[in-house]
Nucleic acid binder design. Sequence first.
DNA 1: GTCTATAGGGTGATAGAC
DNA 2: GTCTATCACCCTATAGAC
Lengths: 185, 185
Amino acid sequence: MASASKRERLTAAAQRVFHEQGVEKTTLADIARVADVPLGNVYYYFKTKDQLVQATIDSHAEYLGNLTDELGRLDSPGKRLKGLIDFWVSGRDLAARYGCPFGTLTVELDKREDGLDQAAGEVMRKLIDWCAAQFRSLGCDDAPDLAITLVGAYQGMAVLANALRDPSIMEREGHRLGEWIDSLG
Amino acid sequence: MASASKRERLTAAAQRVFHEQGVEKTTLADIARVADVPLGNVYYYFKTKDQLVQATIDSHAEYLGNLTDELGRLDSPGKRLKGLIDFWVSGRDLAARYGCPFGTLTVELDKREDGLDQAAGEVMRKLIDWCAAQFRSLGCDDAPDLAITLVGAYQGMAVLANALRDPSIMEREGHRLGEWIDSLG
DNA sequence: GTCTATAGGGTGATAGAC
DNA sequence: GTCTATCACCCTATAGAC
């Protein structure tokens, strides 16, 4: 179906350009050009720019859902958490240039109060809850706090890798987090 | 001097509004209104919007410089680092609503490549270097890495406190960081 | 469903009076 | 030094042909 394909191309383009330029600086013309769709046609698929932002949040949520589903097949909670860390580190070059694809979007949307900020926060909470479940399986009684520490460490290392334009920060911090997980199991 | 006062009012207004709304979404009219200065007059003090962004970065750098100078008077590196953590935690309510005042600015500017991104990165590096000096005084041989971990932990907790609109995250994480510092000394 | 043309509103920046 | 008026441009969104 050609229309579904165009919608997907627009969503993918929006996700990429929002990450590289930020939401506010990005124009619908930017997204239309990257998606190779005429500008006026964008409005057939998304009635407002905010709907493209919502589609981007949904896309991140779906991607994270698939990722945690896959990690869930690993046979121990420690392996699952370390698998998540490996995934984060594998994105170090992109994070060093444009920041965490989902974190920077969340930070930008959090300055608003129109619902899109909460939508992004819910996706973040879902990831934290998944981590907390793994820590609980490891036998930790302060699992929710440990989940905050883990996801916070990732968001923080992404901010610094981005600010200093240094992906190796994420390798070293990822390694440290891996040893931390091992020390808990 | 009235002109210096207006310049300061514009800088302070820019810093506040950039934090609350983000740089891209903020108009010069927003800043002029908050500073109580007529719109056209802004251009007498700052020839472009980017110069207001640069003034904001300089203001953050000066504030952080004053803070580390004050903390430097404490009589042990452990107290200095924990003093920095206390300062971070004391800003938890603002961070939960709008993120770290300097971190969110850096994240937004890092999507550019016009020099303002590097200017923000240098201020972040200065803070990390100060922390590294404290860890060195504590006798740690991987002081630079520990500094990255500490500042990264702060940036990360600020992102999560903001995304989840929960300042208590910064209290708990701040407490954890304090115990971590104690365990090193 | 697809696309062109354009409306309508707002933005950064400037010219020039005082 | 201070401020008003306004330009020139760009953006989101719509109307309507095909």
